[in-house]
Design a protein around this nucleic acid. Structure first.
Length: 596
RNA sequence: GGUCCUGUAGCUCAACUGGAUAGAGCAACUGCCUUCUAAGCAGUAGGUUUCAGGUUCGAGUCCUGACAGGAUCACCA
């Protein structure tokens, strides 16, 4: 049992013994004492004044006195207004630290037997990835890592949207305008080549609409009748029929795109255990429609279309199958949900998808629960806000996007300039230096996108480059590099700072205690991050830890400290901070350098 | 119009899920490199938490209603 629970049990018995009143420990709560007050944990008395029938001050005094007498590690207490602040013996914090140091599994919780799938990325194969995808991919990857550290068995999945009218648009434009160019012949990455034709399609399509409107056609009608649109639709039909020429072009172009994507994923540092393709799954779900009709979850309208009535859940009626018997988006998603379960027997399923699809997933999850799926309660939509530009929303069709490949390359360039300006690459080989720029540039970018609460939409201003100072990835990386220098020096002079070097330690300073408390918090933060599916909890924590460490670093000397054991303790503490930073940053998909 | 999300320092974000005097970073200003990395540290300044009510010992947090921004409400995906 951890110290907090122990204290709660003691407070519970205090109520019993002092006021003859039963309060279950679970009904009580402690909070960390604010740092402007003396103490480590605070118990708020107001809710219990009815029980104590005494003033807040008097109640606090009685309970505090009881704890001080009964509990060995409680060293002191004070009461301010209705707040009972409890201080713990220094030896307790030293013990906590020793426990962390000698626990090789610290930061990795035991397996909990639950299997969870995290679906993220889910790109369309008609255009390259952009800034919005970066947020999606980094989030999905980080959440996967966080769940894993919490003891889940995690399967990272990617559902590739490789078919549909939008894919045909790129294909039509390619047929018309490419003269057979290939990524090699054009010297363009495959995904960018496909994207180029997607934009060209849209340009020509708009022109055609204008021409039709000028000729007197209604605008809505013109959108349907534009020649290239008709061709794209025909191509989709041919694709579904398996027309050889169309399928062959589709395979070729998708192949180029996959090659491009895998390069981008490599730079991003994300990966997947399973890839699903919509071309395989788009017909799934019809059997579920039949099942739903049978179970009375769905109903049929006179024209033959099938619906689900969700008005009792505060939503409306939603279509699940068209009158002509063909699928809609949600039909396919129902089928895919079952497929995922069939493949892996997952108990939870996380969908990392933008918040414009909140309604869709609300409907999907409610349907799967109505159908009584065993994984129904484990469905979760990790909904994140869009990344907007100062000019507004990004639109691939119109080419107003921040391209993922470009942005990542820019970040690495900025890291290069910055590092060279600071003159910090002495003793680095060419290769090591490039590696460092990569680490720092990607670190800055990932941290920038992950430190914000996922559900908030965020603004990205390309004119203002992402920071390397303050609450940033490089700040935390820098802290790690500093500690690495200390470890190198300790090793060099042969200092032993293992767990055994701490035996008999009997004094620690205020800053050191704060660091121990922060280290102890790591696993709690890890759980919060998993409960909320929010890497920002980890990011914020790592910043606090690094910040506190840097204060320690500036305040207290290590190698000029004369007492050998204090020296060993400070190195051990530094080492533990570095290890925690490394673990935490790994959860965010960020590497930490030994030198920078 | 209905539904959902968001609104905190000039800017970007926190606030332990209802607790004490709302905290960080950036930008501005002042100090600190002859001791382990100054991508750092210490400090100054910056707030009617969009507004108006309500709930209670206590509200940035919960409720109601405005206001502002965004998303969504297709037999599109």
């Amino acid at each position: 049992m951890d110290i907090e629970n122990q204290l709660l049990h003691h407070i519970s018995s205090a109520f019993k013994s002092l006021f003859d009143h039963e309060v279950a420990p679970e009904k009580l709560a402690l909070q960390p004492t604010r740092k402007e007050f003396e103490g480590n944990y605070t118990f708020v008395l107001f809710p219990f004044l009815k029980v104590t029938r005494l003033s807040p001050e008097e109640s606090g005094k009685r309970i505090g006195e009881y704890l001080k007498e009964q509990v060995a590690i409680v060293s002191d207490y004070n009461v301010i207004k209705g707040f009972l602040n409890i201080s713990l013996e220094e030896s307790h914090w030293i013990e906590v630290f020793q426990r962390i140091v000698s626990n090789p599994d610290f930061g990795q919780l035991a397996p909990n037997g639950e299997k969870v799938m995290v679906e993220y990325s889910s790109p369309n194969t008609n255009k390259p990835l952009h800034l919005g995808h970066l947020r999606n991919n980094f989030l999905g990857y980080a959440v996967s890592e966080i769940l894993q550290a919490n003891g889940f068995d995690v399967i990272k999945a990617n559902l590739v949207n490789d078919r549909g009218i939008h894919i045909c648009k790129s294909m039509v434009a390619y047929q018309k305008l490419s003269n057979g160019e290939t990524p090699d012949s054009a010297g363009i990455k495959g995904d960018h080549l496909a994207g180029k034709y997607y934009v060209l399609f849209d340009k020509e399509y708009k022109k055609q609409i204008e021409e039709l409107v000028a000729a007197g056609m209604d605008k809505e009608e013109a959108k349907k009748q534009a020649p290239w649109m008709l061709e794209a639709q025909e191509m989709l039909i041919q694709w579904e029929k398996g027309n050889e020429e169309v399928v062959s072009l589709w395979k070729t172009m998708n192949g180029w795109v996959y090659e491009g994507f895998s390069a981008t994923y490599r730079t991003m540092g994300v990966d997947f255990d399973k890839t699903y393709y919509e071309s395989d799954t788009y017909l799934l779900g019809k059997d579920i429609v039949a099942e739903g009709l049978e179970k009375g979850v769905f109903f049929k309208k006179p024209n033959g279309s099938v619906w689900v009535d969700l008005t009792d859940e505060g939503l409306d009626e939603k279509l699940v199958l068209r009158a002509d018997g063909t699928s809609v988006y949600i039909t396919q998603d129902m089928g895919t949900a079952d497929l995922k379960y069939k493949d892996f027997h997952i108990t939870r399923s996380v969908y990392v998808v933008g918040n414009e699809q909140d309604y869709h997933f609300d409907v999907l999850f409610k349907i799967m629960r109505k159908l009584g799926r065993p994984y129904g309660d484990g469905l979760y939509h990790l909904s994140y806000g869009m990344v907007d530009l100062p000019s507004g929303k990004m639109k691939s069709r119109e080419g107003t996007v921040v391209d993922a490949d470009d942005l990542m390359a820019e970040m690495v360039d900025t890291a290069r300039e910055h590092t060279q300006e600071l003159g910090k690459i002495e003793g680095f080989s060419e290769e090591e230096a490039e590696q460092l720029y990569q680490t720092l540039g990607m670190g800055a970018l990932k941290y920038f996108l992950l430190k914000v609460d996922p559900k908030k939409r965020m603004l990205f201003n390309p004119a203002e480059s992402i920071e390397f100072q303050g609450n940033t990835g490089p700040f935390i990386q820098y802290t790690h590099a500093r500690i690495s220098a200390i470890r190198r020096k300790a090793d060099q002079i042969g200092l032993n700072y293992g767990p055994e070097s701490l035996i008999g330690l009997d004094f620690i300073g205020e800053t050191e205690k704060n660091l121990i408390i922060l280290l102890q918090d790591y696993e709690k933060k890890l759980q919060t991050a998993a409960d909320e599916y929010s890497p920002s909890v980890i990011a914020q924590y790592l910043f606090d830890l690094a910040k506190e460490y840097n204060r320690f670093y500036a305040e207290l000397p290590i190698f000029s400290e004369t007492k050998g054991q204090v020296q060993a303790f400070r190195v051990a503490l530094s080492n533990e901070v570095a290890k925690t930073i490394r673990k935490g940053m790994k959860l965010l998909g960020i590497h930490v350098p030994e030198k920078m």
